[in-house]
Design a protein around this nucleic acid. Structure first.
Length: 420
RNA sequence: GUGUCUGUAGCUCAAUUGGUUAGAGCGCCGGCCUGUGGCGCCGGAGGUUGGGGGUUCGAGACCCCUCAGACACCCCA
């Protein structure tokens, strides 16, 4: 490739042929989320940096080194969103959504997220997520509904070989005591990697996320959060598991599952795909009961998840095929001075709900027929001077090869009749 | 941010141990059929071999830098 403009590292173009798959994915999401009572929310692509720092946590990897943060001409510190929940919660508080309708408020969103990471398969610097957030209820039934909806979403798409891991992260009641217990254990533990040595002080829970064999081994004997929940968290988690089992949603309790954002409490979950290599998390989420308050809103329990579009499509491979819609009509322009007539006819047909396109290049008739064929046109109109003078146009059924002459006045009807 | 591997037409790949004007298939455009498709045959366009520097009489092949991609670490959707 010569020295031309290229998309920046970690970004990519979604071209026709692939974009159809994206549309399908979005349509499935919209249909299912809508059926569960969700409405779409669209938030800005960038926010004041503080919005993310407060929610995700100063110590988190994302805030520490992965955010696209810049100063605008007004001197504000802004950040391209690295995830969706913070913005939704900010909007929820800003517009007092909790007071404008019955609780809980069910929202879904979709869009690009940005993280400065080393690109690899299934990991881009600009990537797409679809997500949902439900605010205003801490009922375990809601947790179960959210997780089973996520499950239904994947099933509808045809994803196989998924594992849904769930865990409880406790709440402000029980977590401090557990952290102390864990810290005590870590103080006497050996064989932690250098990074975990650092995390031990700042964010001991994150050590569970480390995949170093040494750390993993050490943590097998560590006290687990799910064994140290307060009574209310314990009951909540028990209900969620029971409800999911009743609903026939397969899950696996993973007591080592902790997630990258500080705002998670109680129920957390992550869906992994077996055929993706290292970037195997195709969706994840959890409860964030304290977050709305943290943004200055009223105490509002909430739960949500996000899924990664690139990874889902990667995992689906050829099992998802966005259909490239065939044209109803292709207009072959025999005499190229008649292109303006073709233009008028095309407008008439489209207004009648018939998809159609025409030749714009002045190709030979034969060549135009080849085009029509490649466009999967169901029929072709031959716009030639001989018939046109008599108010007629030849219409060819591309499947059967049958041709009829139709009057220019009743084109749309004739085409529709043929398409049936 | 670290390590390993890779980089030739739009796509998938060729090019003897460095040796003349870098090839093929598919795709694209056209012709055979001067107003009619899917098959076939024929032809055409399209590459400063990712970019830059170096070694050499000579580099797509070797060396260095750089950019990009893949995989793992890391992180997470």
């Amino acid at each position: 490739m010569a020295d031309i403009m290229k998309a920046p590292r970690g970004t990519r173009d979604i071209l026709p042929g692939e974009s159809e798959r994206w549309e399908l994915l979005n349509n499935v999401a919209q249909e299912i989320f809508g059926r569960y009572g969700y409405s779409r929310i669209v938030t800005p692509t960038f926010e004041l940096t503080d919005v993310f720092q407060r929610a995700i946590g100063q110590e988190s990897e994302i805030v520490q080194k992965q955010m696209y943060t810049f100063q605008d001409k007004g001197g504000r510190s802004l950040t391209l969103r690295p995830e969706g929940t913070a913005s939704v919660v900010r909007a929820y508080v800003e517009h007092n959504l909790g007071a404008s309708g019955p609780l809980p408020v069910k929202l879904y969103y979709g869009g690009q997220m940005f993280r400065y990471e080393r690109p690899q398969a299934g990991r881009y610097r600009e990537f797409w997520q679809l997500g949902v957030e439900v605010l205003g209820s801490d009922d375990p039934t809601l947790d179960a509904e959210v997780i089973s909806m996520l499950n239904e979403f994947y099933e509808t798409l045809g994803l196989k070989g998924l594992v849904t891991l769930i865990n409880s992260m406790g709440c402000p009641e029980c977590r401090p005591a557990y952290i102390k217990l864990l810290s005590d254990f870590l103080d006497s533990a050996e064989g932690l990697c250098p990074e975990c040595e650092g995390r031990r002080k700042t964010n001991p829970l994150r050590i569970f996320d480390c995949k170093q064999p040494g750390c993993h081994e050490t943590l097998k004997d560590a006290p687990k959060i799910s064994d140290n929940l307060c009574e209310s968290c314990e009951r909540h988690f028990g209900s969620v598991k029971e409800l999911l089992a009743d609903a026939g949603v397969q899950t696996e309790h993973d007591e080592m599952l902790v997630r990258g954002f500080d705002y998670y409490q109680r129920t957390t979950f992550e869906v992994q795909s077996g055929n993706l290599g290292a970037q195997n998390a195709i969706g994840g989420g959890g409860r964030y009961d304290g977050l709305v308050e943290q943004y200055g809103g009223p105490p509002t329990p909430a739960i949500g998840f996000a899924v990664g579009c690139e990874r889902i499509l990667l995992a689906l491979g050829d099992n998802i095929k966005g259909e490239v819609a065939g044209l109803d009509v292709f207009i072959v322009v025999i005499d190229h001075t008649m292109r303006k007539d073709a233009f008028r006819i095309a407008r008439t047909l489209r207004a009648a709900g018939i998809s159609c396109d025409m030749d714009f290049t002045g190709r030979s008739v034969k060549s135009q027929m080849k085009q029509a064929n490649k466009r999967a046109a169901k029929s072709v109109l031959f716009l030639g001077p001989d018939e046109f003078e008599q108010g007629k146009i030849k219409l060819r059924n591309m499947e059967s090869g049958d041709e009829t002459e139709v009057s220019t006045d009743s084109l749309a009807g004739a085409v529709k009749g043929m398409l049936v």
